[in-house]
Design a protein around this nucleic acid. Structure first.
Lengths: 199, 199
DNA sequence: TATTACATACCGACCAGTCGGTATGTAATA
DNA sequence: TATTACATACCGACTGGTCGGTATGTAATA
């Protein structure tokens, strides 16, 4: 028997194993037994903590969303120009990605699932909407402070997000000519210079 | 019994049904019976034309790649500036997308599959490499003709491709604030203006 | 009449989820 | 400080439905 652990800890341990397996094999090909084996636990134990495979996946998404929300922006928001804040977020995201690519590599899996599951689609939509609105606010702020041209902030926000999503493609098909950091930097600068007031 | 058809026609019909089903349910959740039912055929017939589910998926990718290669660039390449050619390709891609989003919505499915299947990964890599090199050539040409700044053409090519991939996210989570065309236009202009020689 | 295009009935591996049970805590009561 | 009572964490053999794939037969076509 494995050592006992409080549910709160064990759940997280399972979620992390699930992330690994879901990324490696994809949701449908992932076996509950694979996940359990990853941490030397039993199937019974897994079903003690999670009701079903889908339930586990939903919990994983929630766990995953938690990882991104506290992208420390507290002190940042004050004095600095929007440009720098956005750049900082982008760099920070790239760093997160480097540290644990799996958090990003599940995304296509979530998309695929969202495509056939209302609840999960709504969860994802919700997350993306909040990310978008955060960028929107930053751009709006930049416009008001005479930093950016009078652009459509919603669309620029989407451009930023799509660029960051490009990292996923990057991780999947690793072009070896250049680095992830270069890619992120260049893309952000293209966007930010593009909407900056010329002088 | 369904009317008989020459294999070449029937194969395509099956591939199109498969595309619909694979997009709707995802590869793993898609049932061979679903595909067959879609066109009122029998399972035996399907297995007469394709050896296995995986084989069908590979054939689908090949069929899918054929849809994109002949993006009529014949006459275009001659006189016009690279900027216009790239814009044209982008607009054309957006048009293709509008006509049949499914061709794009399979992409995440292909990525997911590529992640656990060497052969499919190589197919996809090959396709993306050729798309990238096409854009690269256009940008290089633009640089040589004094149209663009001396940028890293490989990276810009990737930016362009990622932007176009953004359409997929767009289709999945349809933001209703603005149109696909606007999104593509804006993104392309950001990139192209960003690398243009200022004057 | 040989071949191709299809239909139908069937097989069996596979796997999410179940369930009877055990082991380890913990806290109230005697 | 035992003892009882209950709760939580965990085990793993088992099952029932599912679904990719096959075997076999038949009608159309060349």
């Amino acid at each position: 028997m494995t050592e006992r652990r409080p549910s709160s800890e064990r759940r997280i341990e399972i979620l992390e194993a699930a992330l690994t397996i879901f990324v490696k094999k994809g949701y449908s090909e992932a076996r509950m037994d694979d996940i359990v084996q990853e941490i030397g636990l039993s199937k019974g134990a897994l079903y003690h903590h999670f009701q079903s495979k889908r339930d586990l996946f939903i919990a994983l998404i929630e766990h995953w969303m938690d990882q991104f929300s506290p992208i420390e922006r507290g002190g940042l928001m004050r004095a600095k120009p929007s440009r720098e804040i956005i750049l900082h977020i982008a760099k920070f995201t790239a760093k997160l990605f480097k540290r644990n690519p799996n958090w990003f590599l599940v995304e296509p899996e979530i998309w695929a699932f969202a495509n056939r599951d209302r609840e999960i689609k709504e969860m994802a939509s919700h997350l993306y909407a909040s990310v978008l609105s955060e960028f929107e606010a930053l751009i709006k702020r930049g416009i008001e402070y005479g930093e950016f041209r009078n652009v459509n902030e919603g669309m620029i926000a989407m451009s930023i997000m799509t660029s960051l999503h490009g990292m996923i493609w990057f991780a999947l098909f690793k072009p070896n000519d250049f680095s992830l950091e270069e890619y992120v930097d260049l893309n952000m600068e293209l966007i930010l210079d593009g909407i900056a007031i010329q002088n």
